[in-house]
């Protein structure tokens, strides 16, 4: 019985931690796309029905459009303009690749913008280290 306050306290901390995590990352695990999946779609010519947008320092992935670093307001505006007339059910994949997600200033504002604009199928390319380690070094299709 005397453990009940401890358990409640622990649960409170746990739920806080979870909500903090959710606040930080606007994407779910299901919205992460593995680089190998995107690479094979590009190689097989099956990426034509999707939009690949670079929201970091450079558009290194083959066929991707260079929006610019999304932490800058002007580039975020550019992203929204770019997507203005795109159907909301279009598969849109964004990537940055400067650094691990916890330090990347670009993926969160860009992904949030996709959600706010009502895109039903937004994806974030899962580059846990950077575009070099998780894409270029694997010889995936590059510009």
């Amino acid at each position: 019985m005397k453990y009940i306050p401890v358990v409640i306290f622990a649960m409170l901390i746990w739920s806080n931690a979870i909500s903090a995590q959710q606040n930080r990352d606007p994407w779910s695990n299901g919205e992460l796309m593995e680089p190998s999946v995107l690479a094979s779609r590009i190689s097989q010519g099956k990426a034509n029905n999707m939009l690949i947008l670079a929201v970091g320092p450079d558009a290194l992935i083959k066929g991707s459009a260079d929006i610019g670093e999304a932490h800058e307001q002007s580039n975020l505006k550019k992203l929204k303009n770019y997507l203005k007339n795109v159907p909301k059910d279009k598969e849109v994949v964004i990537y940055c690749g400067c650094c691990p997600f916890d330090r990347c200033p670009n993926v969160r504002p860009a992904f949030r913008a996709l959600k706010e604009m009502g895109f039903k199928n937004p994806k974030l390319l899962n580059l846990p280290k950077n575009i070099k380690a998780n894409w270029l070094d694997k010889n995936y299709p590059s510009n």
Partner: peptide, 16 residues
Amino acid sequence: KFWKSPVTSDYGIEDL
């Protein structure tokens, strides 16, 4: 050249 710079491979840089 961003992460495409050969210096990142020469020095085995994985993170900044």
